[in-house]
Structures are given as structure tokens and as C-alpha cells.
Design a protein around this nucleic acid. Sequence first.
DNA 1: CATTTATTAGACGATCGGTCTATTAAATCA
DNA 2: TGATTTAATAGACCGATCGTCTAATAAATG
Lengths: 210, 210
Amino acid sequence: MDVANVPRRRGRPPKAAAGFSETRASLVRAGLVRLTEKGFTATGLDEILKVAGVPKGSFYHYFDSKGAFGTELIDRYGAYFAGKLERFFNDHSRSPLARIEAFIADAEAAMERFAYSRGCLVGNLGQEMGALPEPFRQQLCDVFADWQHRTAGCLRAAQAAGEIGSLHNADNLAAFFWIGWEGAVLRAKLERSGSPLQTFAEGFFTMIRT
Amino acid sequence: MDVANVPRRRGRPPKAAAGFSETRASLVRAGLVRLTEKGFTATGLDEILKVAGVPKGSFYHYFDSKGAFGTELIDRYGAYFAGKLERFFNDHSRSPLARIEAFIADAEAAMERFAYSRGCLVGNLGQEMGALPEPFRQQLCDVFADWQHRTAGCLRAAQAAGEIGSLHNADNLAAFFWIGWEGAVLRAKLERSGSPLQTFAEGFFTMIRT
DNA sequence: CATTTATTAGACGATCGGTCTATTAAATCA
DNA sequence: TGATTTAATAGACCGATCGTCTAATAAATG
């Protein structure tokens, strides 16, 4: 049963094979921007449509609902950062601890680039949970669990390299980091300043080196 | 010029002398509950009105707008916690560090009591800043600054008592605490669990004792 | 009782998320 | 080519809900 042997269907085929569409992609892009800025509830479909230059009718061609759209945004955002963490944490040109520092520096630069107007999509939606459809909860928790797991791996490498005290539990440390880091991102957005990020990062590194 | 000598105005007098009103108070109570749960944007006036058992028309008699209502809620919430911190941090039956631990334990118990459905009003609105009227920003920053200042005082007392290392800067530590603690509250709400609070608190105390 | 003001009641327009039908575009097979 | 089939766009439309406002009512006054 070769895929190539399946007879082509009549009629117009999808624009691209694997569910890809430029229109769809621009909806996702615009959605990510707005949701990192304003969250899910406060963001109307219309403003996303306007930014993306896409008529409303198209939206419901590509997505079943606003909720399904949100689900996809969380997935993409989670995967994007998972990839970013993976890249930083596998950079063997640096020591394990320096990889974490580099990730933080990258995130700080990103927040500054957007004038501290955009936060973390997962943190934003987490804060909104009281007003969000329940299925979002597990999805958001899973993203944090994934990020934490990757971070714990890098911390274990740092431990093996003798960069941080071996009394620490890497999983606890990773949890501590993501709990606090999300707080720092929130605060940086509120104060429009990078100093909360620096304050937290500095404290974190002081802590783990002991 | 005695206040009592001011001639009474004609017409129906206010229900109570000093701007107090049971109706108004119940609006504030209901508002605080909903805003700690769902934030400002996602909370409709109608649901607050319904809980408080107050007709919509009355709301705009007591408050100029939803925004003015929010401003007052932030003030009240900020002052409520300022008082709470003051009580804990002036409790001379405990050591300075134990006072902070007691405050944290109290907050953990409060979150558990509400089944982790309510977060911090200031943190919630901070996250929403992208969608909130600009004047809220300074107000929220000021509340954090106040809480941090009180916390720094207690940390200095702990330093004087030799409970924490003197290399630490108390102001930095207080900033670090509130940055991370808000992250922990957010996460606890998301995961419906107290463990993020415990994870952060434990890490924080480990850190400051060195 | 006429007057004044507190308080309530609900109408109001705007906008929300979501659905719908109609139309246009692009590929197919005969 | 031309009829056919489906992808994709276009935007009118719906009920619900948003925050605001005006008109009416209630309660006190001199």
C-alpha cells in the first residue's frame, strides 16, 4: 500500500500537503503575539484577524473554535521553547551552567526587544485558568513539566561537572527555577524593566552554587 | 469651625456618614473574590452584581466605572496584605525569620482553604497589564514596592539577629522573594496544589541561610 | 407637601465568540 | 476544452454579554 498509489481525489486539493497554509500560519503568528501580550480572554478574534489580514470566515475554516486555536498556540509555543532549551542545553561549547545562563540572557534580550510588552504565553494562560476551559489546565501543566524536565537534565550535567553542589536535587531546582522565572517574567512585564529577571537569575545562581 | 456646626443639607442624606454602605461593601467583597479567581478582564460586572445581590444601576452609583472599582479593589487588597505583613513581622514572640515562615504558612493555608482557586489580585492584574488601563500599572507596582519594603525590614531584623548571612542585601532578598512568590502562587493556582508554594519557600530559606 | 438627593431599575449601543450561506479559486476527469 | 469537485474566502448574522447611562423611585429634609 504505497502512499503514492492512492488515487488522487477529484476537485481542488489542499493548498499544501501537510496541513500547512500561509493564511493559517499568519493566524498563528498573530495569535501568539496577542496572547503573550494580553492573554486569551482579553484577546478578541477580530483583532487577531485584523492583524493577520484574514477574514473571519477563513478562521473557522482552519480552526474549529477559539478554544481549539488556543490549544494549538500552547502546543506551538511549548514546542518552540522546548526546541530552544534543547539547543542551549546541548551546546557543548559551554559548561552546563553557562548554558543555562545563556538561555536566560537570550530570554532577557527577547523581552527587552519587545519593550517588555510580551510575557510568557503559558504563564499568562495559567494566570487566567479561572476563566479558561478546563482542558487547558493539563496542557499548560504538561508544558511546564516538559520545560522543567529538560532543565533538570542540564542541572544534573552541571552537578556531574561539579559546578553546583551535589546536595541539591536537580528536579527540585528545576521546579524552583520555573516557578520563580515565571514570576520574574510577570514582574518584568508589569514594571517594563529587565531588573526583575536579573534579580531572580542572580539569586538563583547564588543559590545553586552553594 | 466644628464639623457638627455645618448645617445639614436638604434632601435625603446618605445611608451612612462616612461613605460607607453595606451595598458598596458587598460589591467590594464580591469583586475581590472574583478578581482573585479570574482577573479583571474576564470578570463581568453582572456576575459580581449577581453574587452581591445588587442591581446594576447601583453599581454606577457607588463607582464611576469598572476601572475605578478595580482601583479601589487594588487599594483594599494592598492595604489588607500590608496589615497582615505588619502583624506577622511585628510578632516579637517569634524570631524574625520565623515571622516570615509564619506568614508563608498562613498564605499556604489560605490558598488551600479556597482549593487553590484564588490567586493574588496584584499578580493577576499584573499579568493582564497588556489589556488594562495604563493607570493600573503604577498602582500595582506601588503595592509590590510596599510589600517588599516591609519584607526587607523583617529580613534586616533577621540579619541583625544573625539568622541569615550578612552578605545578603535585604532589599534584593525581599525583591527576590516577591518575584518568586508570585510565580509560586500562579503555579499553585494552575496545578491546584500547594507544592509550588512549598518548593519555592524551601528554596528561598535554603538560600538566605547561607 | 414640595423639595432634594440617594438609590434602584432597566434600556441602550457596541462588541463578543461563533455559525451560517454564498461566492470565488484551483485543481480534477472526461 | 468544459463540467465537476473541493478548498478557501467573504461577510452577514445570531444570541449573549460587555460597560454605560438615563429615567424613575424611595427616603429623608424644611
